[in-house]
Amino acid sequence: MATVSETTLVAPQNESGTKWWTRFLDPSERTLAVLLLMPAALLLTLIIVYPVCRLIWTSFQNLSLTSGLPATFAGLENYSLMLDDPVFWETTRNTVLITLITVPGALFVGLALALMANLPFNVKWPVRLSLLIPWALPLSFAGLIFAWFFHSEYGVVNDVLRRLGIEGVIWFNSANWAFAAICLTIIWKTSSFMALIILAGLQTIPRSLYEAADVDGAGRLRQFFEITLPLLKPAIVVALIFRTITALQTFDIPFTMTRGGPGTSTATLAMYIHQNTVDFLDLGYGSALAVVMFALSMAVTAVYLRMIRAKG
C-alpha cells in the first residue's frame, strides 16, 4: 500500500513536470509564435515602452539636476509653464513651418530627380551615385557645409550673387533669410531620400503600359498623369510618412547652421528640448516638451495611416 500511495503521490508531480516541459519541447503553433516573438517584444519594451513611460512620468515632475534637490511630483506645472512660454510657441511654429515647406519641397525635387534618374542613360552609376551622396552625408555635415555656403562674407552663395551683379544678403542676420537658407539645405539634403524611394517605385511600373499608351496616342504629359503618378502613389505615401516624421524632429541642420539664431527665430522644438535637458538640465520641463513633440508625431502618423487605409 505504502509503495502504491508513494507512486500515486509522485506520479502527478512527474506528469505536471513533463507537461510543463513538453509544451516547449514540442510547442503548438501558438506557443511557438509567442516564444519567437518574445525576444523582440522584450527588447521593444526595454528600449521603447519603458523610456516613453519614464518620459511621461518625468514630465509630471519637478526635476532639475542643477538644483541638487530630489525630484518632486509637480502635476501639470510643466505643461502650464509651457502654455505661456513664448519660446515654446515660437519653436513649435518654426517646426510646423519647416515641415510644411520642406516636405512638399523635397517631394517635388525628389520626384524630378527620380524621373531624371529613370531616363535611359547608357552609364547609370554616376547618376545613381550623385543621388545617393546627399542622402549618405550626415545631417550635421550638411548643416556645417551649407553654413559656409551661406556665410555673408566668405560664402559661395553670396559670391555667385555678387558675380551676377546682385547684392547678397547677410543670411544669418535676418530671421527670414536664415529660415530660407535652412529650408533650402533641408530640401537639398532630404530630396535624395525621396528620389530613391520614388525611383524604386518607378522601376516597378511595367514598360508595356507606356507602350500601350503610345499606341493609343497619349502624349508624354498625359502618360505621366495617367500612368506614372497613380502607380507611384504607394511609394510617395511611404516617402511622405518618413519625411514628415523626420521633419517634425528637425534638429541637426538648424543646430549646426544657426544655433536657432538670430534670437530664437530659427530654433525648432527638438532644439528647445535639447537645450532644456542637456544645457539647462531641467529634465522635468524638457520631458514635458518631448511629450508634446511625441504627441505631434503620433498624430501625424495616425493621419497618414488613415489615408493609407482609406486608399486600401
Binding site: 532639475s64 542643477t66 542676420n173 539664431g261 538670430p262 534670437g263 530664437t264 527665430s265 544645457d279 531641467d282
Partner: peptide, 23 residues
Amino acid sequence: TPRYNEVSEIIRTTVNGVLAGQS
C-alpha cells in the same frame, strides 16, 4: 544663480536678435 545657464541664454539670444534687427 544656480539657473545661470538659462539667464545667460535669455540675454544672449535677445542681444543677438536685436542686433540682427529681428526685434
